[in-house]
Nucleic acid binder design. Structure first.
Lengths: 253, 253
DNA sequence: CGCAAATTTGAACGTAGTCAACAAGTGTGG
DNA sequence: CCACACTTGTTGACTACGTTCAAATTTGCG
């Protein structure tokens, strides 16, 4: 994909790529999705796209980079809710609430495509099958959240860290097929802690322990999943982007 | 509402009641929702409507009673994901996955209305505004889950128990306006623990502590929220059924 | 190269878990 | 109507996982 500048229009749609992996999209559907990604905005690492309790006039499709959503509690601690990858739709919840329930923040330099509420609303009415697919992805996200809920409620620190590593790798592979066992995780241990409900100090100990047990390797900011089977076992991990049944989807328009 | 027997057809729709609180439904929309609740099934306390990893051929609307969804981890522990109240739609996730990611279980004697995938799919295509509303409720549920994720990841045992009590009361009040400060919680301390990621023993201590501090009262299976303000403060609680903006919804058909 | 951020490690502490015993309900069948 | 069994709730003593605090070390960036 060519490198593009602020505001440049490029063909293609990350969202269409993601949805297109699940169903064969019609030309009308593709062009409707492309329209959502007509505009683009480049944002820097650390930039906040939308702040908790502020109102968000726009939705976004993440086209490039890694982002996260989080909430701050009033003791100042942070809970990272979700990592966001290219093709993910951002800010649906900011649309249904007057004040956003979460902050959207870039973990690397990113490219996002903003579109407004009306465009989203129109998409839902004009393309019932896409509406259903958006509901499907909303449910996948919901189930992924319940997995994490169970992890925080009922599993050990080591299991949570292992689950995060597996999930991150799998989701990164979604957009970069060259990733296999090793990858740059692009998160600080502080961030891993805020995602898993642990302190940075304890995350460090758990990573070390996973390394000593031969489950992972580490070096120069990269992690290698050495014994994936054992990791998945330690983590109770299920890939929620597999095992889908979309046979019930309505006809495309 | 008259007491009805197995298979009896009654007018009205719990789902329409819930959605109707947010928008003015058209007659066509109402009748489409009523069609989902044509059949009813009575289930006993403790009955399992759908088991994790089994395939669910149907969706349901909960019409009466209290249910929960949970997952079991392979060490045998349980994480309760969500409590389900009248008007809630159950089993959407069992529709998009070949195997259900969660178990649905009745906490009291319940009445549910089963409908099939085709009926749901048809609803989405025939009524774009209802499709959007279902997406809205899916997002509310998602945000409620992120609140709980933050609670499990970053708050104390006492805060989690307080949050559960507040949430339960608020949701019960959704269907029974007579409930104010006192209510029968209908959960064992074991269940409260499985929802909050604690042990039953520790839940007991936290309830006692909340009682000793004068935040709640307890007696004969009922809980009274004495100092609601202090409870909400202790719990970081936000009611996610408030503060909605649905002005962007598409036109009704 | 120099500084700030991130990682690493150790020691002490505390929240919540575990185990165990008992009490109080709850429902069932005699 | 009571006796019995079983579930649920209550309490105490002990344990352990993860946190906190502090300091040293490494990394990465301007």
């Amino acid at each position: 994909m060519p490198r593009v500048g602020e505001g440049t229009i490029v063909s293609g749609s990350c969202l269409a790529d993601v949805l297109g992996e699940r169903v064969e999209l019609t030309p009308a559907e593709k062009s409707a999705l492309e329209r959502l990604e007509e505009r683009q905005r480049h944002i820097r690492r650390g930039a906040i796209l939308l702040r908790e309790n502020e109102s968000g006039g726009e939705l976004f499709v993440l086209r490039k980079g890694l982002m996260m959503s989080y909430v701050l509690l009033d003791d100042g601690s942070r809970q990272i809710l979700r990592f966001l990858f290219p093709g993910d739709m951002l800010g649906i919840s900011s649309m249904i609430y007057r004040e956003s329930p979460e902050t959207l923040c870039a973990l690397s330099d990113c490219v996002v495509c903003p579109f407004d509420h009306a465009a989203f609303s129109e998409l839902l009415t004009e393309h019932p099958r896409l509406a259903a697919l958006i509901l499907v992805f909303s449910q996948i996200e919901r189930v992924a959240l319940t997995d994490r809920l169970a992890a925080l409620g009922r599993t050990s620190a080591k299991a949570r860290v292992a689950a995060l590593l597996l999930d991150l790798r799998n989701r990164l592979r979604g957009t970069d097929k060259s990733i296999d066992k090793a990858f740059a995780l692009g998160l600080t241990q502080e961030e891993i802690g805020d995602a898993t409900g642990l302190t940075a100090v304890h995350v460090n100990r758990m990573l070390r322990q996973l390394e000593e047990e031969g489950l992972i390797g580490r070096g120069s900011g990269r992690v290698t999943l050495i014994d994936e089977r054992a990791l998945a076992r330690a983590a109770n991990y299920v890939d929620r982007y597999e095992g889908l049944d979309l046979s019930w989807l309505p006809k495309a328009r």
